[in-house]
Design a protein around this nucleic acid. Sequence first.
DNA 1: TGAGGGATGTTAATAATTTAACAATAAATC
DNA 2: GATTTATTGTTAAATTATTAACATCCCTCA
Lengths: 208, 208
Amino acid sequence: MTRLPGKTVERLSEYRRTLLECLIEKKSFIFSHDLAARLHITAVQVRRDLMLIGYSSVLRKGYDVRELIDTIGKIIDSEESMNVAVIGIGNLGRAVAGYFKGKRSKLSLVASFDNDPQKVNKVISGVKCYPYSEIERVVKELDIKIAILTVPPDFAREISEETVRFGIKGILNFTTIPLNVPSGVHLEEYDMITSIEKVAYFVKDNKI
Amino acid sequence: MTRLPGKTVERLSEYRRTLLECLIEKKSFIFSHDLAARLHITAVQVRRDLMLIGYSSVLRKGYDVRELIDTIGKIIDSEESMNVAVIGIGNLGRAVAGYFKGKRSKLSLVASFDNDPQKVNKVISGVKCYPYSEIERVVKELDIKIAILTVPPDFAREISEETVRFGIKGILNFTTIPLNVPSGVHLEEYDMITSIEKVAYFVKDNKI
DNA sequence: TGAGGGATGTTAATAATTTAACAATAAATC
DNA sequence: GATTTATTGTTAAATTATTAACATCCCTCA
């Protein structure tokens, strides 16, 4: 499978979650326009994305929900479970950790890190919290591949460099500090403040 | 000023924050390539964005940091302060609220909402928490224009419709439920799970 | 059995975004 | 003072992403 556009990967993730809801509704087949409507995108978009992953519908019945879930899984999931750590277990860190709780998927949250003595060596949001000094040992021993960075801005750069040195292959950076990582490591950044200011821009003077 | 591309607006927000750091460093002028490097983008990108907002450098000295901060402010900020509410004051809501604390900007967090009796009518992360039943009154009385949605998924649709009915003009949706809003209301959505799964996709088989 | 319809897969067109190219400018250097 | 150098603003090109167009399929119903 050739490398998919990032935007398509994002939508595949959303398709899968929508399809899982369909399963709950006992819906076995779904048309492109129905799936599209649930996500507020166009049916063409859906069909084009599914074309890219080579999935075909059952004619006149739409897409087989269960089969499509599996197909998307084969594309975006790793074979084996991939281990994730949340670094910085403040409000945002706990929120992120919460998303993993009770979900069984190919992504397992296996550790968190923080230096707050109130948190260290306790189980928080379902996962043990280690001090930053143990990042090297824990990342290596637990074979952690992805780090979600929710630390205060001042630590962001240092911690990201460390984790990369210890074998992390993907970082999701929620701090306001832009990071850079060596090639071979995937970096995804999200900045809430930017999003908020963007909304404000479009609201002001009703630029819509 | 004609409507700017969304991506440019996002970067303007980032430029401004980077420039504020420059001020702290007592840096009065900055070259496009320096600003670009700090954000890990290209100098052309910076120059093009600034062209769009019609800001010119002082020749051979680069951009006047303070002046550019003001210029960006004039573009992306509203004249008067704009009021914001966080709806759902769980971990994520508190994290978002935290970003506003102590910052003086044209965006003011003036209320939060939640139904948890432990939270209602208390001040949390610097802002009073009201029960959902008071959304109408509070949104109108405090003239709240932007809602940041951090409620559990089941409430998302209902609450978003309410807030719009009561006068909200912009929504930043952090729930996993895709919303739709009438035209005239700006919607910005961010889905953490999608980001995490995207990182995992690019990490697996090292698709980088 | 064949015409009509509804949905798909795919190619082509359009739109949005980023990157490149380069002339213009003035400070620095000789 | 001429020449080199560094940086900008802007137009043009390339890339990426979305939307439209349409032939195709086969089910339905006459």
